[in-house]
């Protein structure tokens, strides 16, 4: 027996240097191929490695029923926690299986459900407030604002409600129109068409002061319409939300599109991992929705990332 093996044997006998059985955590998503999801998972994985977890990332390639099947499998396998990135309303059967086995489920931008211990996401109310206030301040609290909203989709509907409240709090701001674009082709083309119609209906310079969009695509459509109409120099302020690459580019160019809000996808992944860690340590999570701070993107920081 060499010195080395003796030492290892000693360490094992005394429990020194031999980690306790690693915690097993499964991340299950149908959407791994989408860029946003990859950032969540990257953030989660980095934190999980620091915590020494045995991590299993499972992608079901768009199949939601398979998410339920894989949840059943990992429950059977006896994992310590499950992280999901899919609407909990669609995987009730899987959540119930985990609940029955006493395995906690944490949502990574998933949605709230009584069977989800906590959902980690961005605060849509705060993001909408940030851009709406940006618009109001930028136009000095008075003028005509065009809103692009989409009430059929609850997370976006919430953004619209907040913008309504902010603009309603400025007596000299009028909401000229509250447009719901057709989003079947992504939302840019129809938003552009609707904005073109609105520009035609309001031909005088200065009759439109700002465009507030509940996400980036309508903001980009409105930008195209304003530029095509030759009214880019009227100082119409445009804001979006999400700060997708195309929006960042437009903001960095320094035109009418002035601001958007970036979600911290990696931060959501990291915080989801931290939340799992808290639950595994036995903490009862009372705050069932955990928000990760977002960043206002303007020409000052649009090039970052």
């Amino acid at each position: 027996m060499t010195l080395r093996t003796t030492f290892i044997g000693l360490a094992a006998a005394t429990g020194l240097g031999v980690p306790a059985l690693a915690q097993e955590v499964a991340v299950i998503t149908p959407y791994l191929a989408q860029p946003g999801t990859q950032f969540y998972v990257d953030g989660f994985t980095a934190r999980a490695e620091e915590l020494g977890w045995d991590l299993n990332v499972i992608d079901t390639a768009g199949d939601v029923a398979a998410v339920i099947s894989r949840m059943e499998d990992v429950v059977n396998q006896g994992v310590d926690a499950i992280v999901i990135n899919v609407d909990p309303a669609q995987i009730g059967a899987g959540l119930q299986t985990a609940e029955d086995a006493g395995i906690p489920v944490v949502g990574m931008d998933a949605g709230s459900d009584p069977l989800v211990a906590a959902n980690v996401t961005s605060n849509g109310y705060a993001m909408a407030a940030e851009t709406a206030v940006y618009v109001a301040n930028r136009i000095g609290g008075e003028g005509n604002v065009v809103m692009f909203t989409f009430d059929p989709f609850p997370p976006v509907q919430a953004r619209g409600v907040i913008a309504d409240a902010v603009f309603g709090n400025f007596p000299d701001i009028q909401v000229l129109d509250r447009i719901t674009p057709d989003v079947s082709d992504g939302g840019i083309a129809d938003s552009r068409a609707q904005m073109e119609a609105l520009l035609a209906a309001n031909p005088e310079e200065g009759s439109i002061d700002a465009v507030w969009a509940a996400w980036d695509q309508p903001a980009l459509g409105a930008l195209q319409a304003i530029e095509a109409a030759g009214r880019a120099d009227e100082g119409i302020v445009i804001t979006g939300i999400d700060a997708n690459p195309q929006a960042r580019e437009a903001i960095a160019a320094g035109g009418n599109f002035e601001a958007s809000v970036a979600q911290d996808f990696e931060g959501i992944g990291q915080t989801a991992a931290d939340t799992v860690a808290r639950i595994l340590e036995g903490e009862e999570i009372v705050q069932r929705v955990i928000y990760v701070p977002t960043t206002l993107v303007t020409v000052a920081n649009a090039d970052a990332e």
């Binding site: 299993n56 990332v57 398979a66």
Partner: peptide
């Protein structure tokens, strides 16, 4: 195969 490979923590793409 799906069930067993998931339980053995085989990567989902490798599984396919």
């Amino acid at each position: 195969l799906d069930n067993g490979l998931t339980q053995m923590r085989v990567d989902s793409y490798v599984r396919e």
